[in-house]
Amino acid sequence: MYNTDMPSRAELPSSAKLIRSTIISAILALVLLVAVVMPAEYAMDPTGAGRLLGLTEMGEIKQQLADEAAADEAAQLTAVPSAAEELLPESTAPVQQATATPGSQVEPTVAMPPAAAAEPEWQDEVRVVLTPGEGTEFKMTMEEGAVASFHWVSEGGPVNFDTHGDGGGQSISYEKGRGIAEDRGDLEAAFSGNHGWFFRNRGNKDVTLVLRTRGSYGELKRAI
């Protein structure tokens, strides 16, 4: 039976070398944690390297999915029957009575509401079908302070959404919603970068998402 030779004392690493190797390994592990793991898993990017490598956006999506899953679980535990909607009496238009002279018949005049001003045309319109569990993201390139009007509707069922922005090492979440079928308003860019929406279909059937935008932005594109 062959026995390997035992290394001599001179061949063994010294205590100083072992300590130095341990310190170097710890430093490398810390660098990987801050530059790679934290941006990719938790969307935390203190060095900015994760944004350059495209890891921070992946972490943001993971956090969105985790928040949605936690919110869905909490909603199932605390769900209560919704209150019945109260019926409102139908409103009637005011009727102006004309003064009648003897022997004549005067029909009442109905006051008509003023015609609503026509909305301007939408600058862009996108339409996408989301299967159960599928998500998508749309972003607009905007300068700080720019304003874009939007209107989106989910045909076939509600969706979860997160209105957010990122750029130049900054990120922001403007608004989040669960089980929403439609939303409209104005989005003002807090800083220069990409600003838009992440949508996810948490239902059990396909839905068609329609997004319309107009205003001060450079390009509307589908990121996911």
Rank of each mutant, 00 (worst) to 15 (best):
N3P: 02
M6H: 06
M6F: 11
P7S: 06
S8D: 13
A10F: 11
L12T: 04
L12F: 08
S15T: 09
S15M: 10
L18Q: 12
I19N: 12
R20L: 15
T22F: 14
I23K: 12
I24S: 15
A26M: 15
A29I: 09
L32T: 11
L33Q: 14
A40T: 03
E41K: 14
Y42M: 11
M44D: 12
T47W: 12
G48W: 14
G50M: 04
L55N: 09
T56S: 12
G59R: 04
E60D: 10
E60Q: 11
Q64D: 11
A70E: 08
A71V: 09
A74R: 08
A75L: 08
Q76S: 10
V80Q: 14
P81S: 03
A83T: 13
A84R: 03
E86K: 12
E86V: 13
L87S: 14
P89M: 06
P89Q: 11
E90H: 05
E90V: 14
A93N: 01
P94L: 00
P94I: 06
V95A: 04
V95G: 01
A98V: 04
Q105F: 11
P108S: 02
V110N: 02
A111C: 01
M112P: 11
P113V: 07
A117K: 12
A118M: 08
E119F: 09
D124N: 09
R127V: 07
R127D: 11
V128A: 02
T131F: 07
P132V: 05
P132I: 10
E134R: 11
E143F: 07
A148R: 03
G157M: 03
F161G: 04
D162S: 13
D166K: 13
G177D: 10
R178Q: 12
G179Y: 01
G179E: 10
D186P: 05
A189L: 04
A189N: 09
F199E: 02
R202S: 09
K205M: 06
T208K: 02
T213S: 13
T213E: 09
R214L: 05
Y217K: 01
R222A: 07
R222D: 03
A223K: 14
I224W: 15
